[in-house]
Design a protein around this nucleic acid. Structure first.
Lengths: 312, 312
DNA sequence: CTGTTAGCGCATTCAG
DNA sequence: CTGAATGCGCTAACAG
């Protein structure tokens, strides 16, 4: 009992220490799996991300891990590639009783898809990119309001005199909401939105999209890319044509990946404080694990921040 | 038995399918922890890295995961920050019978530190940055010869006419070997080495080191940084002083992190094919898990590759 | 070849 | 308050 971390007033501190010491000398350590079998608590959390090698996610995971470590939970990393197949596969996997809880980013699953898992007693905290309500299913959401962030970016640009602002984005994921925010804000400011959507949300996609914008006759004074990788592609396209950044065209990205401050000129972008999000998500999960399993889901908003660098 | 993935010629394919189907309908799935308790195989692998948010490691982890996934092992991510404390803590953790095997990068632990773990039946595959021999302890090493890579970089620069090549490096980790290789190759080519060591192996460190080099009167025509982050810092320092890259001073890095090709100009660097290393390491681990637990350790070398971009 | 049983190491319950 | 007995769900060994 002592070794499991339990507390009882009936055992004196002295005895307690004797036990701990003896255990250390004998090299004894309780078997996690026997514990898990008996208590049906695995002391393991799954962290699900679309791509661990996408620079956006490791910081999130670090945040999660910093709290799970402190609570003696192990963290299992799970990549889904953001595909429906692999996300469903994760659900099946998680239902095998391998983990006590889940925190993750899901591109294709809907809240109802989690119902069986949650009802089997495994709490889920999702990290989302648009406003959520907190439905009847006991899933907790934590989100950054991407739409508002995109509006903020657009307003920042218009406040600096830009009216011809183009946006480039990829298909899928959170990028749709960002486009909406941009459109709304630009219309409100009296501008005319111009959006180019491409398949890949990568540098190559950004480069191609920028070329389309330049060929369109829209003549933008600023280009807003739905993520940093695309923004970097945009910058490459502009540089190839000898267009000065930000002199002739300003560029803004989204995510604040580590490369954003390393390109030339350093990229103005939006941070989502991903580490903080990870911490917060894990805390919410820990809270569920300790207490109210069945209560309705919550949704809490996290801040974003505009980071001004020299590309604008 | 069927569900555990066993094989027996005595069961017809038809029966086999009936069982699997029935199990699917009933939603039955064997409990991993009961299995683990009974068989003392946890079906879990630990992947230990100094810093998951350092762009170098996620690709490695992906490689590892691509093979563990295929073998139905879970992957637990473990960050050590490369500190002795946390690396020792990992050892203690691993001895609690939580994982069947370990693959990782260790900065401070020595082969002998792993002996208790390995002798308790948990195979370890280390990823190293200098030539290893394969000692008596049953640890498998897989390494890239950093020294040779640093020599190759230096030779590449001298072959392009550089003789005044400075090197900047951080303390600890694999950077020492890289400095050795540089010195040896430059001396062999008749040059005079000039090394600046700083505490942090980050951009800031690289920036400071570059300033030291420039202030020294060495007047380099090329600067070789022990990793890409430092190289990027060097580039910033040069840019601040209006020194043209590569016209006046060429810059080379090490690691080929994703940012390397995104900076301006794109950075010439050395790749260690980190994903391949992860795959290979995991394969070796799987081999150990299936067979020869006690055999002497092996050490296999992995290739590096010089990636020429526009910074040279 | 199918059906039964013991026990992996723990946390919990019940008797002492 | 301490000690022994039970069973978590499974696999492996054994008997029928």
């Amino acid at each position: 009992m002592v070794l499991s971390g339990g507390t009882s007033p009936s055992i004196s501190t002295e005895t307690h220490e004797r036990i701990v010491k003896a255990a250390a000398e004998l090299g004894y350590t309780p078997n996690r799996f026997a514990q898990a079998l008996r208590t049906s608590r695995t002391m393991t959390i799954a962290c699900v991300v679309p791509d661990i090698s996408n620079p956006f996610y490791p910081a999130l995971m670090r945040g999660v891990q910093s709290v799970t470590d402190g609570e003696n939970y192990d963290l299992i990393a799970f990549n889904t590639d953001g595909t429906p197949d692999r996300e469903r596969h994760f659900l099946a996997w998680a239902r095998q009783g391998r983990v006590d809880g889940v925190v993750g980013v899901f591109f294709t699953l809907r809240a109802s898809d989690f119902r069986p898992l949650v009802e089997s007693g495994v709490p889920v905290v999702r990290i989302e990119s648009s406003k959520k309500q907190g439905g009847p299913i006991a899933i907790d959401d934590i989100y950054v309001d991407s739409r508002a962030a995109a509006e903020a970016v657009t307003n920042y640009l218009t406040s600096r005199g830009h009216t011809r602002i183009a946006m480039v984005a990829g298909r899928g994921g959170p990028q749709g909401t960002r486009v909406e925010g941009y459109k709304a804000a630009l219309l409100a400011a009296g501008g005319t939105p111009h959006v180019v959507i491409v398949d890949e949300f990568s540098e190559a996609g950004g480069l191609g999209a920028a070329e389309t914008v330049l060929a369109s006759g829209y003549k933008p004074t600023a280009i807003f890319a739905a993520n940093d990788l695309m923004a970097i592609g945009v910058m490459q396209a502009l540089r190839e044509r000898g267009i000065e950044i930000p002199g002739e065209i300003a560029v803004v990205g989204f995510d604040d990946i580590s490369a954003a401050k390393l390109v030339t000129p350093p990229l103005t972008t939006v941070t989502q404080f991903q580490r903080d999000m990870g911490v917060k998500a894990a805390q919410i999960l820990m809270h569920r694990l300790r207490g109210p399993r069945g209560e309705a889901g919550t949704a809490i908003e996290m801040p974003f921040g505009l980071i001004e660098r020299n590309s604008t």
